[in-house]
Nucleic acid binder design. Structure first.
Lengths: 222, 222, 222, 222
DNA sequence: GATGAATGAGATTTCATTCAT
DNA sequence: AATGAATGAAATCTCATTCAT
């Protein structure tokens, strides 16, 4: 957790620091991201950074929490709490995709938070994040079963893992492929691409994916 | 590519080097893995390593290719080439899971090959690997459509991304959860866990997942 | 350019670092000079050096600029700006020689700055330095022609190259020969030699060389 | 001195080794030139190199001797032994320039042999080479004085240093400037430049320089 | 005579973190 | 609260040379 000093900072300065840090952690794996570079670009003293955050990890986790929080808030505001499971899924995909496209920096940082093996605390934090995502889907699936829109014989836990994998990893790869880029970096570097994915296409994709979730791949009669 | 020198080495030594390197790259993200540590543990001179491999990246890529090659070979030998799509899927899941459990080091290195942002060539290599995996599923799906076991209205590309995400990311997370560990590291560190997943359970899982792929989550009548 | 950090240092420390570095770069060609050795001798941390200078090249160029600046200042103060060309030449030779004898370390570093092939930026810097020297002589020669002390049919550019070669390379070799040493190193190592070149001899040499520049080698009647 | 083994080699192989080595030492300062690179490019075993030459230094000196020998032979064959001093000078300049233009690799290696401070034996060798050059000019000057073409009051030693500096350093810089390049490397890289210096221009340059040597810069009446 | 694997010292550079001011 | 100099461990990589086969 950032120290109190950080929150005492004038909002402008705080934002600037966050932005610079997002840039750095967004464009490099955690272990290659450099505090030295961040303070240099932000134009603040290195010592100051250590007045604001305990250490590199603390800063990174703060950014992740920030990103996750904003994403969650955005998605929740777009979802109808009373919708049935598949409608909610579709809305989640839609909102998640839009959020990513509109907040590429945050998206990048989250995407960069995958491989942190060997960084004890950090790794735990990320595992915890994944778990939260799965628990969320677990609850939704269970609710769907109760409402009768999801088959009772579905293994809830297994399904939650799969939905989670699809909506985080799978969907992101798919979108990057649509853009014809291999990294989010390239996407950020060419903002004109942002236009390429029209609202219509995003809707189409969400609907297709939802259909897949509902019906699977198999012939209906089978 | 390793230099010829490496292949001229006595098999025993070569294996030892590979093993030591797998340990290192398996327990740290690429950028934190250290050649110095590897040579120290392997008991060879630093210079020697550079006679065998061009550089760190070369070594890492070699390990990845090794792992991918062995996994592919194992899976192919376990699959009935004439089986229909879903049977093949089930066999793939089964074989993939068994391979991972029996070759935890290789599994680990592959799992660690996610975050390589900022390492040009390496990143490209990994993106290429993902693409190969998806292309494989694409072909399988198309074949399934021709054979009539997969609905024609399924978006092949989207489906390939999803299947790929489920069988790589999703499945691995799920298995680790079954073991009650957050990292493959922990799994490696406690070999007794290997027993915990009985053959029966693995079969059950594969069958469940295949069912999910076929039927999706939705009520059949829906 | 050295970083601000370097200039913030207490003068004493700064001088010590410069001195140590001059010793190192004076006694080895650029590519063999070692930062590790410098910091070891200066008794500072390796990391500190990189707070002061961007890299090895930065340090070396700083030393060269320092030397060139001091030499220029010294020479300018010894020259009568209104003197005719040959008088100015004589004064330049005189002052340049004295400066070298009194600042053997700087002299050495400048002498060692010859072979930098394959070091892009560094090489450019040195080429630029040579060019400045030639331009200076070009201007002087042209002025001499206007004043009527230099023949109009002299090829200014060619002459500038020759004067420059004589006063940098030729003169230094000659002086080292006078001392009976093959390297400036040896000269530095035996400070008692400093006395050997009396003021009278230096004057004699400057005058002889000037005569050569003026009259060439040929018989006057020829 | 190369070992006998080297001379026992088939001429073709010997030439190839020499050529590869010339390339390497021609494009890098001695201390950066790499035996490893040479053997790799020449396609011979590293051990073999040590059967041919004692060490790096031995190889380098051999190349220098080779270059010097060839240059000397070329020049001598172009000079009229009975010519008077200034004619001989002009012929030397002419021949030296032509040799350099026609043997850019050798030229480069010789040019790269300037800064070898800190390499005991090597340095001595080079100092010796310079001395030989000066001694040659000393003898010529003395002869010129006896023949009456050079003034008796010229300080022979000083003059020899100056002529030597002009014809080695000064002339080379001048020519490179004519070509508009800063390094011999660039000259080698763009063979089309070779044409730029016409025979006529080379003659003009030699004649101008000789005139300078004879008459100096000063007004004749002065 | 040829080979080429082994060596290990040493080079430059980076970085998170501390701490006196 | 802010600063920024100091630190030193650690990383990757290169190279001349040796020596057993």
């Amino acid at each position: 957790m950032p120290r109190q000093t950080f929150f005492n900072l004038p909002e402008e300065k705080r934002k600037m620091i966050i932005d610079t840090a997002l840039d750095e952690f967004g464009s490099r794996p955690y272990s290659k991201a450099s505090l030295s570079r961040i303070v240099a670009r932000a134009g603040i003293a290195k010592g100051s950074m250590y007045q604001y955050f305990e250490d590199k990890k603390d800063l990174f986790i703060y950014l992740l929490e920030l990103a996750a929080g904003e994403k969650l808030a955005y998605i929740q505001q777009e979802i109808d709490p009373n919708a049935d499971f598949f409608t909610a899924c579709e809305q989640t995909i839609l909102a998640g995709t839009r959020f990513g496209l509109n907040n590429p920096k945050l998206w990048q940082v989250m995407a960069n938070a995958k491989d942190t093996t060997g960084e004890e605390l950090l790794h735990e934090f990320i595992v915890k994040g994944k778990k939260m995502s799965r628990d969320y889907f677990s609850r939704m699936i269970r609710k769907g079963q109760e409402q009768g829109s999801i088959r009772r014989d579905v293994d809830t836990r297994l399904a939650a893992y799969m939905v989670s994998a699809m909506l985080s990893q799978g969907l992101m790869d798919y979108i990057m492929d649509l853009f014809g880029v291999g990294t989010l970096d390239e996407l950020l570097a060419r903002p004109e691409l942002g236009q390429k994915l029209t609202e219509k296409e995003v809707r189409k994709m969400s609907s297709e994916l939802t259909k897949l979730l509902r019906n699977g791949l198999g012939e209906m009669s089978s």
